[in-house]
Design a protein around this nucleic acid. Structure first.
Lengths: 177, 177
DNA sequence: TTTACTGTACCGGCTGGACGGTCTTGTCAA
DNA sequence: TTGACAAGACCGTCCAGCCGGTACAGTAAA
């Protein structure tokens, strides 16, 4: 029996991320994703009429999830700054073993403009952080350092040891105040 | 008359970087590179028998250039730390408009293992920086912030304004001591 | 100094395979 | 029975790598 109205979109998105991570971003083909998602190629194309739409879906779901996680953290401890929440969230996100979002490379290869929403999101986040601090210099250092953490995670470059990672996070929280 | 012994390798490498930057990392085909370099496809394949070899060449030349630039800076001002030199070099590298090394995305798509030498290089650099400082926390913050700067540049995400960029660099130099 | 040979650098058409996207043919729930 | 959705064969395109050539420099025997 074929599962009717089983939310294929989510399965497909997850499968795409899996394929990009395991087979490499260059091997993210529609067939591979469909097969991984337990869906036929036609089924995939029904949900995402084009490869570009699939990438777009990946970007949007990524941003949505991140936003939700950040909001949850910020609401969970209202006495601390959003910057602290962002630092801690990113520290957790980059804890190994964490699946890096390799699909991003596929998206960039497909069309570099897929970065635009992400860029906009980051800009927006930075603006929000600026509002809650008076020390712009420290904020920038923290913001960029987090960016560095995330990028290392994305590139799967675990240059830092576990201890160094913890020390870094502690230092950032101290700078953030 | 065909230019004999005109160093095609360099021209091809430069052309590959250009194509990746201008046409997008997903459009880096051998034909496009050959045409851009003013070389036939056969000529390209003569110099780089495989696309993977071309990517490898890109990585190696990138690392070699970076190493040279860093050494030059470090030697140029021997009274300051290597970390300071690294900060300043990266700040200059990320000054817009600077061609981001989009070819890296093509390389990753071809085979994620092309990152290995880069990872190793960074690790080595970090070890070297560790030797000259006693404050590991500050070093890590600086190192990661630079990483963030470079990643933003690579992704062509100019989230920071000119002034913010300068403030960031100043703050980093202050932290680096 | 002519001729024959060798190795280097480069050319460009070809092909086999992979991939994105379409189309026809189902198939189940209402 | 109908319509939303899924299956997978199929088609056109693109591209990496191959291969048979060409041009030329050097060498050296004749």
């Amino acid at each position: 029996m074929r599962p009717r109205k089983a939310n294929s979109r989510e399965k497909i998105l997850a499968a795409a991320a899996d394929v990009a991570r395991e087979a490499g971003p260059g091997s993210l083909s529609l067939e591979a994703v469909a097969s991984r998602a337990g869906v036929s190629k036609g089924g995939l194309l029904y949900n995402f009429p084009t490869k570009a739409k699939l990438m777009q879906g990946l970007v949007e779901s990524y941003l949505r999830d991140f936003q939700k996680a950040l909001e949850a953290r910020a609401a969970g401890a209202r006495h601390e700054s959003v910057l602290s929440a962002y630092i801690k969230l990113s520290a957790d996100d980059c804890e190994r073993p964490k699946p890096p979002a390799s699909w991003m490379f596929s998206a960039i290869a497909e069309d570099p403009d897929f970065l635009t929403p992400i860029k906009a999101f980051k800009h927006q986040l930075l603006e929000r952080l600026k509002e809650e601090t008076s020390d712009l210099g420290s904020l920038l250092v923290c913001f960029l350092a987090i960016e560095g953490m995330r990028s290392m995670n994305l590139f799967d470059s675990d240059v830092l040891s576990e201890d160094e990672h913890k020390l870094l996070v502690a230092s950032l929280l101290k700078i953030a105040g």
